[in-house]
C-alpha cells in the first residue's frame, strides 16, 4: 500500500490490485490474485501461511515503484507494505 500513495487510506488489497489492472500494469495477475487469496485465507480464515506467489507480488511492487518514481512522487512509495 505504501507503494501506492494515491490510494485512499481505506483501500483494500483487492481494490488496489483492481486499480493496477485498470492501469494495465504488467504482472502475472493469476498468480498475484492467487497469492492474495492465500494471504486472505491466512489473515481472516486462520489457514496456514504460505509463500505461494510471493515472488510475483514482489515483482509487482517493483513495477509500481518504478511507475511512482517515474511519475515524480519523489521518495513516496519506494517500498512495498
Amino acid at each position: 500500500m505504501v507503494s501506492m500513495p494515491w490510494l485512499p487510506a481505506g483501500s483494500t488489497w483487492e481494490e488496489a490490485f483492481e486499480q493496477l489492472k485498470e492501469a494495465r500494469v504488467k504482472a502475472d495477475w493469476v498468480k498475484v490474485d492467487g497469492a492474495l487469496s492465500a494471504y486472505e485465507a491466512y489473515r481472516y480464515g486462520g489457514s496456514p501461511a504460505t509463500v505461494a506467489g510471493k515472488d510475483d507480488v514482489v515483482a509487482l511492487a517493483h513495477v509500481i515503484q518504478k511507475r511512482v518514481i517515474g511519475n515524480g512522487a519523489k521518495g513516496k512509495g519506494t517500498r512495498a507494505d
Binding site: M1, P8, A9, G10, S11, T12, W13, R43, Y44, D81
Partner: peptide
C-alpha cells in the same frame, strides 16, 4: 467514511 478507515490488511 469507508475511504478513510483503514481496513485490516
Amino acid at each position: 467514511i469507508f475511504a478513510k478507515v483503514k481496513p485490516p490488511r
